[in-house]
């Protein structure tokens, strides 16, 4: 179970990373198309006008999708920021139970976010909502990815909560400790 969950968080984080890479590739293609047009104008040929349709809109969807997919992995990597003053001053036992409480609160808030996002995706499905740009993209697709990412985030927080309650060290705490030691 531990291995499956860790692979799930890491896999989603990689998917997010690859998506950011994909945005870079698409932008490069767009720039290349523009340079080809320029070159054509210089030698008095009709510019071929190679562009990626709706790149701004499509790229924004890719960005949002990547962000939500990466949330759980970012938690495990100790990436999400929080104030640790109180936790650091409390005795170990109290700090642990405060950690459980905080994870529970975060899990509840991410459950709210997931539910909200699912409502939106269903709404888009029901009304056949499509994007505004040159290529109409059904919004349920990127909004579905957003929902999945938030759901995984919720799972990761519950996972951390259980780990803490059992006296273990959750992924985010281990990663935070590594950063603190480096600094």
């Amino acid at each position: 179970m531990r291995r499956i969950l860790d692979r799930l968080y890491a896999g989603a984080l990689w998917l997010a990373a690859v998506t950011f890479g994909l945005i870079a590739v698409l932008v490069l293609l767009q720039i290349a198309g523009r340079l080809i047009d320029r070159a054509a104008r210089l030698v008095d040929l009709p510019p071929p006008g190679l562009t990626i349709p709706s790149l701004a809109e499509f790229g924004a969807f890719l960005f949002a999708g990547a962000v939500f997919l990466g949330l759980a992995g970012t938690l495990q990597a100790g990436g999400h920021v929080r104030v640790k003053l109180l936790i650091q001053t409390l005795p170990a036992g109290a700090a642990r139970w405060l950690g459980v409480l905080v994870c529970a609160a975060a899990a509840a808030l991410s459950a709210f976010a997931t539910w909200s996002s699912a409502l939106q995706a269903l709404d888009s499905l029901q009304f056949n909502s499509v994007s505004y740009g040159v290529i109409p993209i059904p919004l349920v697709i990127p909004q579905g990815v957003m929902t999945l990412g938030l759901a995984l985030f919720c799972v990761a927080l519950l996972d951390s909560m259980v780990t803490l309650a059992r006296g273990g060290v959750p992924g985010y705490r281990a990663a935070e400790t590594r950063t603190e030691e480096q600094a």
């Binding site: 047009d37 054509a40 104008r41 009709p46 510019p47 505004y132 740009g133 040159v134």
Partner: peptide, 10 residues
């Protein structure tokens, strides 16, 4: 002809 013309929808 050949000019870059701003397009914001279909």
């Amino acid at each position: 002809e050949g000019a870059a013309f701003r397009a914001y929808n279909a």
